[in-house]
Amino acid sequence: MPVFDEGKHGGGSGSGNVVTVEVDKDNATDAQLRLARARYSPTLVVGDRTTGCPGGAPFDRVIATCSIRRVPNAWVAQTRPGGIIVAPWGPEYGGEAVVRLTVGGDGTASGRFVGSSAFMRLCQPRSARPSSLEYLSGPWPAGGAKSATSVSPEDLGGWLAMFAVGAQVPGAFPLTERYADGSYTLWLHDTAITSWATADWEPDRAAYEVAQSGPRSLWDEVAAAWRWWDDQDRPGFDRFGLTVTPDGHTVWLDSPDNPVPLRN
């Protein structure tokens, strides 16, 4: 099944004005046969979906049916000013929502998230997610500083909460180690493999043991991000937005003039 569709600009209606890009040759062949049986005839390209289809640009619409962490610059460049990009977007930490971006004439795109989503990630180079053991330098607590927190690991597990935290804490991700008695340890890792943190959840507790080590105090970052979201009355996906420029991405709340704080 094609996972990235582009509506071609200026050619009227009909499937002949659509370009679809699929990275897997077998999937592309199967999709082409099914489309032909349904009497649709889009242009089907086999290749890297992050590069789009330069030969077919400019496009009115770019629609991604795969989750991304970054909107490729090529998608923005190949969409005409005023055109729309719709894509499921999620930060490294987790959580995801569909964003609807309007492309400007200056190589940027901006718009709001319109609702929660959960799509397969785009097949592209991914940051390493090593096991927790690769972060530890010796026996427990492996040089980690211990403390306690009133922020429950349970508060951080929802899809929306993960999105709100991840938008503020780039380059970090969680793993959960569960035990037979129902308790668990929430591990936080950075993608640079320099820092880690743990928070131990047990039922009927108001404080939770934390350990963290490395140049980044990951638990402090994540807890501060969650408190910020809580202080804003836990806004939903529809209050968040995204601005894309050639230099990077900025997540904002309510307005592009109000970027979310970055914690690292």
Rank of each mutant, 00 (worst) to 15 (best):
L101P: 08
F4A: 15
S147D: 13
K25V: 14
L218T: 00
S150W: 02
L44T: 08
S137I: 03
A225F: 02
A211K: 05
V210W: 04
G95R: 01
Q212V: 01
T245G: 07
R121H: 09
W196C: 07
T65L: 13
F59N: 08
R227E: 15
D24E: 14
G143F: 04
A118Q: 13
L44G: 01
N27H: 10
D254K: 05
P170V: 00
Q168E: 04
W219H: 10
A197M: 03
S15I: 07
H249G: 04
W226C: 01
Y184E: 02
T65G: 14
F119T: 05
A118D: 15
F163R: 00
Y184L: 11
G56R: 10
P235M: 06
R49G: 10
Q168C: 05
T185C: 03
A31P: 04
G7R: 15
A142Q: 05
S117N: 08
G16R: 13
P235A: 08
R61I: 13
Q124E: 13
T198Y: 02
T194N: 01
W196Q: 01
W229A: 00
D254T: 12
W226T: 03
A57T: 10
D106T: 10
E22V: 04
E92L: 14
I85H: 11
S213V: 00
V165Q: 00
L218R: 03
L242G: 06
A225G: 00
A97F: 10
L35Y: 12
C66N: 14
D48E: 03
P125T: 05
P91T: 08
L133W: 04
